[in-house]
Amino acid sequence: MVQPPTYEGPRAARRLAELGLSVEMLETVFERAEADVRMCTKHDPPTMPGFTRWARIVRFLREELESDGWTYDNPANQPRTIHPRKLLAIVVKSGDEVTGFDMPGLWPANRNPIGEATRRAVDDNGQFALFTAEDLPGLSKTPMWVLLYQIIDGVVQAELSLPDKIEGDRIGHWLERIILPAIDLGPDHIGRVGPSRDDGGDTDAYTVEVERKEG
């Protein structure tokens, strides 16, 4: 399996800058989100910490980028954060155990199943790899990137990556991956609790248990 271009360290920082983003800003987003997650208690529903983390990452990403001219929308209940010149739109999803690591022969994937809105956007990304929006006017003019994250022992492993293929209910192939430095949330972080989906998602998506498939 041919690995997509994968950026880490200084190369990742430079690639993010080309997209109007920075490592420091994304670290701030995750840290602000975790501060709100810590407000959850044992009296909340078991899925509250995970859902709160996802929702606050979406919110704080928008807040951090608003002053730079980024906008947002929510088609089919899929929250997108959109570059001022529509170079990209970012959606946030929780990822599997490969997320945030460059592991030859393995691809990261979203942990929860996708819905039709994500499927259409990823299909459009795949067409962008072959054509342009001018060649195929039906394509979305804004490629969708995914801010994919997982929490391991209080550490965020995350990446901003460009998908182009769906396998079943999961993203199965990536055109490009930008891996972020690990972010230590400290000893009092709240991990994932409960089996239900914790990343919002499209209105027609549903929750199933899936096994990681090696490429």
Rank of each mutant, 00 (worst) to 15 (best):
Q3D: 14
P4R: 15
E8H: 10
L16W: 12
L16C: 09
A17I: 04
L19E: 04
G20Y: 03
M25T: 13
M25P: 14
T28Q: 03
T28Y: 02
T28K: 11
F30L: 00
E31H: 13
D36Q: 13
C40F: 09
T41H: 04
K42F: 01
D44V: 11
P46H: 14
M48D: 01
G50Y: 15
R53Q: 01
V58R: 12
V58F: 00
E63S: 04
L65K: 00
D68H: 15
T71H: 07
N74D: 08
N74Q: 10
P75M: 02
A76M: 08
N77F: 05
N77P: 01
H83Y: 09
L88D: 08
L88F: 05
V91H: 05
V91I: 13
V92D: 00
V92R: 10
V92Q: 00
S94D: 06
D96T: 11
V98K: 09
T99K: 10
D102C: 12
W107Q: 06
P108K: 10
P108D: 01
R111D: 02
I114M: 06
A117M: 15
R119W: 13
A121C: 08
A121V: 04
V122K: 12
N125A: 08
F128L: 15
A129V: 13
L130V: 10
T132K: 09
D135S: 11
L136T: 03
T142G: 09
W145H: 11
L147P: 07
L148I: 00
Y149S: 05
Q150M: 08
I151K: 14
D153F: 12
V156M: 03
V156F: 11
Q157C: 02
L160T: 06
L160G: 06
K165T: 06
E167S: 13
R170S: 10
R170F: 02
G172T: 05
G172D: 07
L175V: 08
E176Y: 12
E176A: 12
E176Q: 13
R177K: 12
L180M: 12
P181L: 10
D184Y: 12
P187C: 04
G191K: 02
R192D: 00
V193C: 01
G194L: 12
G194R: 06
P195A: 03
P195D: 11
G200D: 08
G201S: 13
G201D: 01
D202F: 14
D204S: 08
V208E: 11
E209A: 08
E211P: 08
E214R: 14
